[in-house]
Amino acid sequence: MAATQTPTSQPTKSTRDGFGEALLEIGRANPNVVALTADTFTLSRIDMFAKEHPERTFDVGIAEQNLLGIAAGLASTGLEPYVTSYAPFLTARSLEQLRNDICYTGFNVKVCAVCGGIAISVGGSTHHAIDDLAFLRAIPNITVLVPADAVESYKLTKAMAQHPGPTYLRMGGRAPEPLLGIGDYPVEIGKASQLREGKDLTIIACGSLVLPSLRAAEALAGEGIEARVLSMHTIKPLDRDAIVKAAKETKRIVTAEEHNVHGGLGGAVAEVLAETVPVPMRMLGIKDVFATIGGLQELYDLYHLNTQGVLETVKAVLEA
């Protein structure tokens, strides 16, 4: 199972940019859209929207709890706030504001997080969000989205504008991420996007692990193993039908995500399988440790969040 390690010469574009471009279009069409940030103006790419609509853009300073509370209040008056900051500070830091003031109330606030996962690799554990999906999975009323690349990020941002209610969009960091480069495909909230057909197993991935999963599937095809690949960009509400179908048709499941193996996509899929079609399954993710310091690619390699890691996980599930 020889696999090439990411990255290669794949064209890149930030998921942040896909979001920022979509927000600009949404904001042009809808005067109720308001953008907010907590001293992360440029990084979160609301600068594009802000340039055209300075009167609808607010920087509350380094105060993320305040940020989410203000967004709730704005939404209560009928406006549609898009709030941006780093993933750990929009979730762990402000979790109660997010839960009580936005999810409990059901306000139409779009929580748009940059630097999800370990994107700020050298920032250390205070700046990593490998628990955000677990937090949000346990909170009712919120839609949770994890785009695989800038194209999915753009499409999901456009889709969430048409999808009232609390929504969390988890994007990557400063460095542009590789584009999947597989052409146009439907990206719909609540529906897994099938990126590759296969009958021998299914790899269900989200975010930065989708591309390595596609590469792994390619390598597996060379050995006569046909892996289905799903981009599970909607963690909540989860596409149970696609999971059950995959379990019935391919008999084996692998999940892959830039998150703790506890409580994220893997856990969500396992919950579905346990109650429906309990086929063998293995999960790839960070194994319940605070990640070390290093470059992003170095950490991806260290924690096997790469093509090789997907292949190892596939091997384990095939041997199960």
């Binding site: 700020i120 050298v122 920032g123 250390g124 070390t292 310091i293 290093g294 470059g295 950490l299 260290l302």
Partner: peptide
């Protein structure tokens, strides 16, 4: 900031 350094950001 190097891999596994005690010193990060």
């Amino acid at each position: 900031n190097k891999l596994n350094s005690p010193f990060g950001m």
